[in-house]
Design a protein around this nucleic acid. Sequence first.
DNA 1: ATAGGGTTAG
Length: 565
Amino acid sequence: MHHQQLKPAEAASLPRHLLEAHVVALVRRCCPGLLALRAAHARLIRLRLPRLTAAFALSKLLASSSSSSCGAAPSYARNLFDQIPEPTAFCYNSLIRALSSAAGVAPAADTVLVYRRMLRAGSPLPNSFTLAFALKACSVVPALGEGRQLHSQAFRRGLEPSPYVQTGLLNLYAKCEEVALARTVFDGMVGDKNLAAWSAMIGGYSRVGMVNEALGLFREMQAADVNPDEVTMVSVISACAKAGALDLGRWVHAFIDRKGITVDLELSTALIDMYAKCGLIERAKGVFDAMAERDTKAWSAMIVGLAIHGLVEVALKLFSRMLELKVRPNNVTFIGVLSACAHSGLVNEGRRYWSTMQELGIKPSMENYGCMVDLFCRSSLLDEAYSFVTGMAIPPNSVIWRTLLVASKNSNRFDIVQSASKKLLELEPCNPENYVLLSNLYASNSQWDRVSYMRKKMKENNVNVVAGCSSIEINGYLHKFVVSDDSHPEIKEIRLLLREIADRVVRAGHKPWTAAVLHDVGEEEKEVALCEHSERHGSWLPALTGNATTMSIVGVYSTARQIFR
DNA sequence: ATAGGGTTAG
């Protein structure tokens, strides 16, 4: 009965519960996939089901089209919903669930509209499913305003105690980087906290870079006897990657193996990212090679990792392999490819990849444009860089203008300097970095009137230079340092050690750049030293990815540690 | 009657 075609005549004679069983089986069999769903839809129409069973069938189709395994189908879901004469809560909930897979900011706005429509209709009333799905839609955007409206709805309707609503709220705040709000929900959870809540909270801390909090909570979770799974571990590993905490990352990887946690696609990608960011590109490659299947993100993580290690040829070869295997690259993949070209001055190759990107129909992101500007600037093709910037399809951001400005400051292209600095101050009148950059630029040309003008403008805009900071992981704890901050309890020992390292670098006959960075030198020299460093090794240390002014003495220490390794 | 939280690359 379940596996054979049912004819309209037979359908008419079947009792309702058997018909419904048939509908359930039919819809279940065709999932996932929108096409199969449409075919099932057509067959159900041909059966000319009685009114109630037809509504039931439409509800089942709607629920199926809203599941994530079906692929994005919000418009189909709307279509189905509109055919249901008296939608139940189940129908509303499925429609809201389907909306969360739409692109852009639409899910949040549409969700609120559907929710309002439900309230206006007077019945059915929203239940915990409604809120859980609606909150999910707001989390994917993420949309804090809409989410807060839903929070107050949950409270007013007494649906707040539901663990699914709670996790939905917690996740919403975590996605919006409102960790304090997320923590309030987390702490207020009644009874035992479930795995999803722990994972969402750890993920929230990791997302905003509160690494110690993320790892601390991971320990608390184990103390509370909640067993982490592969989803939890993705956040934990990603926290290690953010911190550049290699020792900790290796320990966590060993933990994953010891506990027999499945290293799936996502966790492998997180591990690749972690090893690459922590400087162990070979281990990253090892994880990549061991993967059973690799999606765009996994390939991108590997290619970007190789690129930042300066392993340009390997990165580009891997990209060709990716194309051969018909994995579709996206703009992030091209960040890796283009930055690889920029790193080693492959201008023509970079241009070629840029057209490849166009041919593949990938719309360049700001970062992609940034890679090209960087590519031209590093090869001293200022004219090309400038005309590229002015011809961009989207308005260039401050990063682009800063790249151009730094590249042209030692040239005689005052027109570029002029226009770039003007744009920069328009776009970011409150970023101290720009004032430092421009002051230094004018000072080096002895344009003292302009230097003091900069100072005046800073005062006008109430801009204060904030100290850059850096961090290093030692024995599983992240130590933070701020430029010229001596408050670290072991600052004396740290300074002594740095001096020792500097001496050893010189004695070992290394280029003096390392020593230059280690001693208290001017920003300009640090910048030169960093450029040389990047060319030689790729900028694999997170501590060094900021500009020279945001680099603290301990950031340098970790560089030196890597060199001696 | 029918369904549900958390994760990944720049």
